[in-house]
Nucleic acid binder design. Sequence first.
DNA 1: TTGAAAGCGCTAACAG
DNA 2: CTGTTAGCGCTTTCAA
Lengths: 341, 341
Amino acid sequence: MKRKPETSSTAQARAITKEDVARAAGVSHITVSRVINTPEKVSPETRTKVESFIASMGYIPNLLAGGLASRRTRIVAAIVPTISHSIFAETVRGLSEELSRHGYQLLLGQTGYSEDAETALVEAFIGRRVDGLVLTGVQHTARTRQRLKAAGIPVVETWDLTKRPIDMLAGFDNHDAGRAMGDYLYGKGYRRMAFVGGEDPRGMARFAGMREALLAHGAAEPVHLKVPMGSFLHAGRESVARLLDHHAEVDAAFFSNDVIAAGAAMECARRGVAVPGRIALAGFANLEIAPEVLPALTTVQISAHQIGLTAADMLLARFSGRAVEQPVCDLGYSILEREST
Amino acid sequence: MKRKPETSSTAQARAITKEDVARAAGVSHITVSRVINTPEKVSPETRTKVESFIASMGYIPNLLAGGLASRRTRIVAAIVPTISHSIFAETVRGLSEELSRHGYQLLLGQTGYSEDAETALVEAFIGRRVDGLVLTGVQHTARTRQRLKAAGIPVVETWDLTKRPIDMLAGFDNHDAGRAMGDYLYGKGYRRMAFVGGEDPRGMARFAGMREALLAHGAAEPVHLKVPMGSFLHAGRESVARLLDHHAEVDAAFFSNDVIAAGAAMECARRGVAVPGRIALAGFANLEIAPEVLPALTTVQISAHQIGLTAADMLLARFSGRAVEQPVCDLGYSILEREST
DNA sequence: TTGAAAGCGCTAACAG
DNA sequence: CTGTTAGCGCTTTCAA
């Protein structure tokens, strides 16, 4: 039990351990452990004494060691395409708040919309022995699915629906949501539609749904404009410019998210193009910017925050051994009409 | 060395260990360890053989155990006020990208601008034995500073400057930046200024700098409007409305960040108020929205992304035992003139 | 180039 | 209510 001399290049001062506190307080280290984890199982005097030593010595338990011994890290990992854009921020916020309320911490990973990056992150997080994992979308590499199955940790897929979830699911039907917007725009009298979005699976599903609705109504094949990663606002401005200049027949555009749509609205304002007079604009997700931009955006309201909350609650139920009453949860969507259509 | 029967309520399948791989490959577990960590120290045949077993068995090393034994987790924690807003997103992105390039992962914490929350996060992260820590701002509780000193881990403070950093620093002078904007606006002929921002220390410093500049020029005391947390766009709209309605003399407003300023621009557009004719608007940070909104925002350009990159490089240098050539790094700022002033 | 022994700091299970 | 014993899975000497 002798301490070796300090040699590590990180030069981290030898941290105080439970042993040190126990010695100082004249108890065994397991008692210190109990004071921290199950204080009700320790006599009040002992507890008070130990607690005062913990405080005065500035003892911080090594969660690495604790996690190794107990096989629970109290860490949940979330993997999102990106946090730079606000689309997933609400979900992450809901997740993070609910988890931290229950003593869990959130480890965040970004894929940049790459499935291989997701696989790498999943492996890294399994290596960290996270207690649970939240994934964005339902499309994953075979390797990801297999790793997750093998690890046997609770998983929640989000932001979409599927017949064959890996484990649990909290999302909504992107295809249906797209169709609903198609129906809505057609119902408002628009006939030549465009869809502007990235090539992520959920955006594609929304496009497919919208297209289906339009064709069912006998409307023309919608124009499909792809936007690059990067600045959504800028992409929105560029794409609406393209629409205005090269697809003059288009009278309504549905954007993959509100930020792109807001960019489009800004470009229209710049050009003095009337919205919705010359072209109607609809967004997706009801982000912060949707009601603020001029004109306020019609959008598809989804519960991004609720997705995070639900995912957290599902995991928390699993952790505590409770049965998850609804392991597959469709949170729905609704059309929110504002000024832009 | 006998396995206990599976009882854990997490029901995590017994994970494959180095032992299992070693046994299968007919080597000792330490050889497996070498194949993973220092492959050049293993003979090519052994390496190939072990690697194939690692792959086929789907072995994922337990980083908890590794971290415990090696005293390095390859995790860096970053603490920001919030990730929901885009202000710190660029910094986090720079940090995350640079770190992951070098095999480190990022653990993210949000304080909601509360110093006590920061302290709690610092303690939690120290408990996780992160290799390094990135903090936002230079104002921290005594307890935070003391914990950090005691833990002896590398720390980078960001987004501000101070004479007495905890350890390393990558930021810019908020007071000076505010003064520069004050000078600029005064130089453009504006005389009745307002500052709109939150009550975070950096925003306050910018206000103080601006005020100092104005008073030095003999201009009037600036109006100071506080915005609540929450929606910045909305706060911007509300505050400019207040300015327009109750401080009609104000001819220029400086906002704590571009998102608030953009909200203000949107409200002006809604009201048909001329910018900068009736009121000039200036933002801060040169966020994505600044050049896109109508009118494009004059702002203070700072290198949010560079802050993250620099912080990462400082930590990386420390980790590898290299000396950090510039432990205190002033990244500067500059006025970026656009249409809104 | 490979292996054996000895922990890292903690918790689980059992005993007292 | 408190302590003892035995690992958790890995890396670090040190030895072969």
